[in-house]
Design a protein around this nucleic acid. Sequence first.
DNA 1: GTCTATACACCGATAGAC
DNA 2: GTCTATCGGTGTATAGAC
Lengths: 184, 184
Amino acid sequence: MDRSEVVQRIVKVFRQQGYEGTTLSRISAATGLGRASLYHHFPNGKQEMAEAVLEYVAQWFGENILMPLRDQGKPAERIELMGDRLNQFYDCGRYACLLAIFALGEPDHLFHQQLNQMLNAWIDSLAMVLTEAGIPANQARQRAEDAVLEIQGALVLTRVLDSTEPFERVLQHLSLKLLAPVTC
Amino acid sequence: MDRSEVVQRIVKVFRQQGYEGTTLSRISAATGLGRASLYHHFPNGKQEMAEAVLEYVAQWFGENILMPLRDQGKPAERIELMGDRLNQFYDCGRYACLLAIFALGEPDHLFHQQLNQMLNAWIDSLAMVLTEAGIPANQARQRAEDAVLEIQGALVLTRVLDSTEPFERVLQHLSLKLLAPVTC
DNA sequence: GTCTATACACCGATAGAC
DNA sequence: GTCTATCGGTGTATAGAC
């Protein structure tokens, strides 16, 4: 089991338990590594594990969500691809979003700035696709923000209502809503 | 300081710190009561405090959000009123939603069923207003769910982006979107 | 009701043998 | 690298005086 596999298992714990709810015991159980081994791989302890988690997710997100958005191909297809990847990433909405989880606690939380940048990068990439599709810049930004907003909201509803329906519905209508002709 | 005031201060702690992040020390600091005093008021400790918090919020929510929705008056006005109350409740989106916070952890969390009921009650009440306004039942339910979804998403974005803009924007467009004429 | 004192478990983290 | 053993600190929870 290499480091990437270990980090992926830790990601799972943080996503399920939140930052405060994630304990070394749970991480130990999830990875099969003892406490001391964990400190061998992550000398700075829990915080370093959280940083590794965030780094892994940021990289995955960049490769699987942002890059396809900036890639070639029809706008609609790129957005559909993002939807597929999101569906995979969030397991039909059953997994919570680390952005939302790590944003809890004090507003000046450890990772706040990093989270802010990630979210903005996502919105920006999405907006760029829309401007490419001929949507005015301010409208594009707005719609992109709305799309991310709906995805985040859908994740909450999916968890609380115990149904993947909201998440799947939002994904289904993503490209249609985003690329709808400008009316006003 | 009566019990209600104490509970309100505890609510604040849970909303800011989440369930796991809320410690008796923080509650003690927020209320001015020592550990032992807290156990006098809530013999079952932290869990009972969380239950009291949820009960308080459920009651506030019922009186300030659900009742007005079921009340008399034009649908648009009732929805606007809900928006005002939400704006007050979430402090322009700066406060997180307890529904989302308490939904973390295992899917079969302590409060899951209660959260589920609260969210469903909200969606149902909203859908009822829409059917009253002449919107077909299935469409009404869908739109109501969408509205709650957008509010939850806006809370996440407002936190992470450090701007109340998304939340305020969502509230502003609530009644227009909900009561828009059916097109299909 | 609130205080001091305290019990006990678990937290994150470290040391040292292997 | 992983183990056992252990540290100091903090968590929840209680007991008993006032």
